[in-house]
Amino acid sequence: MFTRDYHKNPFIVIWELTRACELKCLHCRAEAQYKRHPLELSYEEGINLIDQIHLMDNPLLVFTGGDPLMRNDVYALAEYAVKKGVRVSMTPSATPNVTKEAIQKAKVVGLSRWAFSLDGPTAKIHDHFRGTNGSFDLTIQSIQYLHELEIPVQINTVISKYNYEVLDEMAELVKKLQCVLWSVFFLVPIGRGQAKDMISPAEHEKVLRWLYQLSKRVDFDIKTTAAQHYRRVVIQQKMREHKNRHDHIDYEDALIKGATGTIDGLGRAPKGVNDGNGFVFVSHIGDVYPSGLLPIKAGNVRSSSLANIYQNSTIFKELRDPDLYKGKCGVCEFRHVCGGSRSRAYAATGDYLESEPYCVYIPKAMRKKKPI
């Protein structure tokens, strides 16, 4: 059984190696630039950071950006981490930097998985979203390289009004490309991301229910980001299935099982990972945030250890206590396995403890009782 204590150690660490990137994505959290920042963590500082991460019960480590391939020491950093036993994956941008030789080098180093973004089943949709013509074709070509070199492929997709109507076709493409994981991001209005590009709360619910049904008939895993209420949807759907089969299942027991990963289908993160709760983000200049989508700085690894910031900063401690959540999230029976997107709550209200504004669920505690 999964026993990691999120009060002490995260499940996953995202390190933004650089903000340099050749793409101009409409939703870019980092508002990426064409050139690297002069104050980026150096190679030596990166090595020290990897050592610190390893000591935090060796969580998953993801190299992101910008485009991590814009750093010429990315493979040296990856090799060091892998040799320490750290599980490393990378999310490069689909640019001419992604050659077959570059991927071969990553395989030699020991990178466990590559992730590429695909935001539509056609070049027209994807290239518009990524702000660069030819991005779709480069992505498909890069994925073929990965298959040839037998490296597992993950696809990341941001759900927005631009692709909401073509998700069935998108799922077919993910299946066709033989990916091991489809990581589905739900837009948070930060950086270049705009609220006008988001789908509605009702559409969020519709997509989450569709994802659950999809998960039962495909051979790739499905993970959501900034849609913690997917856990609530999965638990509800499974409970309905048990009821329809006349199984005896206790409601509260189902929630407890959901928290330990035996019913909610979220095997990669068996507990309720959320911003600052099992999740930590380190920026290109060493600033530490609960996530890349929640822009409240908790410290910097140049002046404090990552463990100290994660364990002791006020924002992280508050985010790890769902009983502090406000509004309907604060009384929701699913708050310990869901909790809503803290990033979206902050983006919409300015308060990271407020309710998830794009969840339609009404908690039991807030429902009106029928008159006798």
Results as ranks from 00 to 15, higher is better:
L187G: 03
N156P: 00
I199C: 03
C179L: 09
S200D: 10
L146D: 00
P152N: 09
L211W: 05
W182A: 06
A171K: 14
M170Y: 05
P121W: 04
Y145F: 13
H126N: 12
K105H: 09
N133L: 14
I155Q: 09
E205V: 00
L146E: 01
V207N: 04
V108Q: 15
G134C: 05
V180H: 09
E169W: 10
A115F: 13
D168Q: 14
E101C: 05
K124T: 14
T139L: 02
G191P: 02
Y212L: 06
K161Q: 12
H147Y: 05
S117W: 04
Q213G: 06
R232W: 08
K223H: 12
Q213S: 09
L138F: 09
D197W: 13
I140P: 00
Y212Q: 04
G191H: 05
E205T: 07
A202W: 08
R209S: 01
H147E: 05
E241P: 00
H204G: 02
Y230E: 06
W210C: 04
M170H: 11
K196H: 12
Q213C: 05
L149N: 01
L181M: 11
E169K: 15
Y230G: 01
V174F: 13
L118D: 03
A106M: 13
L187W: 07
V158I: 13
T99W: 09
L177D: 02
F116P: 00
R192N: 12
M239P: 00
P152Y: 09
F220I: 07
F136Q: 01
T225E: 14
Y230N: 03
G191L: 12
V153K: 01
T224V: 15
H204Y: 15
V174D: 03
W114E: 03
I103M: 11
Y212K: 09
Q236I: 12
L187K: 04
D221W: 12
V188Q: 08
S200I: 08
I143A: 02
